[in-house]
Computed example of a mutant assay.
Amino acid sequence: MSDFLTALALVAVIEGLVLALAPLRYQDLLQTLSEMPLTRKRTIGLIIVAFGVVMLWAVRAFVA
């Protein structure tokens, strides 16, 4: 459970840094996402999830 909460905290830190350091770029990204077709958003989301799973597996298998 602490790993999950740590992951959520890191997501919050990264999101906050993006908003604090590059708010206009973030706004442009949101505009681009709002114009993107739903199927492309889902595909990008699934690719990001798969990348995260592979990264998590690699960290658990080779670092720990």
Rank of each mutant, 00 (worst) to 15 (best):
M1V: 12
M1H: 12
S2G: 13
S2H: 12
S2N: 13
S2D: 12
D3C: 15
F4Q: 13
L5N: 13
T6R: 14
A7P: 11
A7Q: 14
A7C: 15
L8A: 12
L8Y: 06
A9P: 07
L10A: 13
V11F: 11
V11L: 15
A12Y: 05
A12E: 10
I14V: 15
I14R: 14
E15I: 12
E15D: 12
G16D: 04
G16C: 11
G16K: 05
G16W: 10
G16T: 07
L17K: 01
V18M: 15
V18D: 09
V18N: 08
V18S: 10
A20I: 05
L21P: 00
A22N: 01
A22E: 00
P23Y: 02
L24D: 13
L24V: 15
L24Q: 13
L24I: 14
L24H: 10
L24A: 14
R25M: 11
R25V: 14
R25A: 13
R25T: 09
Y26P: 03
Q27S: 10
Q27T: 10
D28L: 14
D28C: 14
L29C: 03
L30H: 01
L30A: 03
T32L: 11
T32Y: 05
T32S: 09
T32F: 06
L33K: 03
S34H: 01
S34F: 00
E35G: 12
E35P: 03
E35V: 10
L38S: 09
L38E: 05
R42S: 07
R42H: 05
R42F: 05
R42P: 01
T43W: 00
T43I: 01
T43Y: 00
I44Q: 08
G45D: 00
G45N: 02
G45K: 02
L46G: 03
I47N: 03
I47F: 08
I48H: 06
V49Q: 10
V49G: 09
F51H: 06
F51L: 14
F51T: 09
V53T: 00
V54W: 01
V54R: 02
V54F: 03
M55L: 06
M55A: 06
M55R: 02
M55E: 00
M55W: 02
L56Q: 05
L56K: 08
L56Y: 04
W57P: 13
V59H: 04
R60S: 04
V63F: 05
A64N: 06
